[in-house]
Write a protein that binds this DNA or RNA. Structure first.
Lengths: 246, 246
DNA sequence: CGAGCAGTTGATTTTTATCAAGTAGCGTGG
DNA sequence: CCACGCTACTTGATAAAAATCAACTGCTCG
């Protein structure tokens, strides 16, 4: 198989076309205009890499040589202040894309929350690929636009929502993602700690814990374990997330 | 001049190539690979629209038919909660791009802060343009990536910075933009009210006012008028913005 | 079985919001 | 051109939300 074919395979992965147990349907829709059937045959050649829990995929300040597509596991993406305060700007899951951020250096750190597999390849190869697959760029733009909209929603959360509203929003987002990945509706699995949830929501672990307890005692959610939650009253949670007091 | 030529002109504007008193240099660098010189001749045909202060360019929930390139003035982009809490997710200036956010509906409202002129055109025309100008998409992806990085920086600000750190960061960002637009370094002009700054920084007007007073009395800034500020001690402001206590 | 870490719960403090009362700048109309 | 009135802004007092500090619980893994 030629280098070009291998790169083409990598591209398929990047664009999210590669069939995947947890994300197949959604990813395919992103760039359905590509010649899926020919590309899919090449997908098996993608350059997969395994990352251990806690290990970094990229570090803030590193030269941005690579792009990644998460094929399994989950990832925390964060920025730090000099004194150690951390803001997690997103969690990534199978099918998600990493390394899009601009400039020649990464502006964030990305670390595995669980054992993660990624398709990793050099940006230089990506640039060559664009000539062969013009639709790739449009698929990436689509992705970037979605991420931007999500970032704006998160700014609303961080700037204007109360602790309870933030946590309710987070649970609903996570439940939605779990459902898309084939899970039951109103059931969700957390791959991160309370401290990571806190750093994502701009809160402390104590506050996350207190809000969780409150939702538990008011019968809105039920903890099956520390990392598995059932939503008992979805409508109530929805109302909370959008700011109806409760 | 044919429709195609007119669209091509619009595209030039979108991509930011159109020469412009305040943003020329930066915009040109974004898609320098386009055949600038031929395109520039067509730029004058761009479909310019004027928007009065306070008037909306797009409204949250509206069907997203158009794309815009700001050619003069400034714009607030925000999201609302049902009870009226507002988060301004960004301010746009000459050379900036609006409407990139995905889906068939706008997820935000954009309103003029001052008299604004924009280049406005339909998304359907944009799609046809891509065939003629493949580099346009890559320029837009570049822009989107920059916006995403800025959004992540803002999440760090909203989630983890104190009121003073937020305001210091805002002043430095604004000063940088003013300098790029040809203004003096360490001098900046605000086109928005204190309430709008507050809604951008996740604070109240009172807190913005108090922090401003504090920076004034500590000799870090000087107010030439309500909307014009001189930075007297840039290093101190920089230290504050990144979290060194003061 | 026990050590250590993640998570919970409680007491207190801090920060910022809220409520309230001015002040100043600006545009309009006399 | 000046005065008036509106709105934006400032400053102060108090309240609320969440952070911090501290103690304790319980799960997980050697």
């Amino acid at each position: 198989m030629s280098l070009t074919d291998s790169l083409r395979a990598a591209c398929v992965n990047v664009a999210g076309i590669r069939p995947c147990a947890t994300c197949g349907a959604r990813a395919l829709s992103v760039c359905g205009s590509l010649a899926e059937d020919g590309l899919r045959r090449l997908a098996a050649l993608a350059d997969d890499v395994t990352v251990a829990p806690g290990a970094a995929l990229v570090r803030e300040g590193d030269t941005a040589h690579h792009l990644f597509n998460i094929t399994a596991g989950s990832v925390r993406v964060y920025k730090l202040l000099p004194d150690g305060r951390r803001q997690i700007v997103g969690f990534l899951y199978a099918g998600d894309f990493l390394g899009l951020a601009t400039g020649d250096r990464y502006a964030f750190t990305a670390e595995a929350l669980e054992p993660v597999t990624v398709c990793k390849f050099r940006k230089t190869e990506y640039r060559r690929l664009l000539h062969d697959l013009p639709d790739l760029e449009s698929a990436l733009l689509e992705r970037a636009s979605h991420e931007l909209a999500a970032a704006q929603e998160q700014m609303l959360l961080l700037g204007r929502k109360t602790a309870q509203e933030r946590f309710a929003s987070f649970l609903l987002d996570t439940a939605r993602r779990c459902a898309r990945a084939g899970g039951e509706a109103d059931r969700l699995h957390l791959t991160m700690t309370r401290a990571e949830i806190a750093d994502y929501l701009g809160l402390t672990t104590e506050t996350v814990s207190r809000v969780t307890s409150r939702l538990k005692t008011t019968g809105v959610i039920r903890l099956l374990s520390l990392s598995d939650i059932a939503i008992l009253r979805p409508a109530a949670l929805q109302a909370m997330a959008h700011g109806s007091q409760d």
